[in-house]
Amino acid sequence: MALEDFKIILSLIKQNPVSLTGLVIVAGFIVVGVLAPYILPYPEDAWGEVYHLEKRFLPPSLEHPFGTDDMGRDVFSRVLLGARFSLIIAVGVVGLALLIGVPMGLIAGYLGGRVGTILMRITDMFLAFPPLLLAIALAATLGRGLVNTIIALAISWWPWYARLVYVQVNSIKSLPYVDAAKIIGLSPLAIMFKHVLPNALTPVTVQAALDMGSAILEAAGLSFLGVGVKPPTPEWGLLVTEGWSSINVAWWISLFPGLAILVTVLGFNLLADALREASDPRLRRILLISGRV
């Protein structure tokens, strides 16, 4: 995607109020995620190292906009800091998945032949698992923790990018400029990384950026199933789960972190939807049906 396309898409997003909402949400999430540790009203509560007996289960008020939890911690601070952890998870998962998936797809697509077939069969084996299932198995094996959560999700995630890059590379490698590069005697590695990869990378990075919403959602699911991050990390899914046991006395503990997930993921998905609309709908549909997206 060239700068031109980017401008076109941006103007399309601006025209549509729904897409614009998505853009604003995502921008807001990133800002909060980056600034979170510096704008916490109750920093100690957010990191979870304290226990205020006298402030347990306070309903939402001006002082505590999202109320307090079973340990008397300010839920608002915890949700704010949760944005930071969600951002780390999202970037980590998608980044690691790209790091595995892109070379896989590139090598399989460019070399083709037997090596390509084997690599893509391995990819297909991973794709035989429904989303999140493989991550659950891995997380159960590796144990809880932020890094393990990222690894578990990324390993179930990379095959999608391998596929996407594979398809891209396949259409690029027969273009005349690649032939030209071969004729002047460039090594396959140089052609792959210098001439094919840059042209195959844009669609997959755009896709990856928008997948960050799903990464946040799945990490939250892992937390809920007890194989995600460790307490007292204020990850949103874990915050919802921690509020579960006292939901009948203090609904706010679970409600607000869940809303944070919902709004953030919605933002990413609305933006993704806008891009899908902007690109060729027929192509997208075929990709969607064949399970390549």
Binding site: L217, T241, W244, G258, L262, V265, L266
Partner: peptide, 15 residues
């Protein structure tokens, strides 16, 4: 419809 793909199911179930 995008909400459908964005909502954490366990949270919706709890609420």
């Amino acid at each position: 419809s995008v909400l459908g793909a964005s909502v954490p199911v366990f949270w919706l179930a709890l609420i």
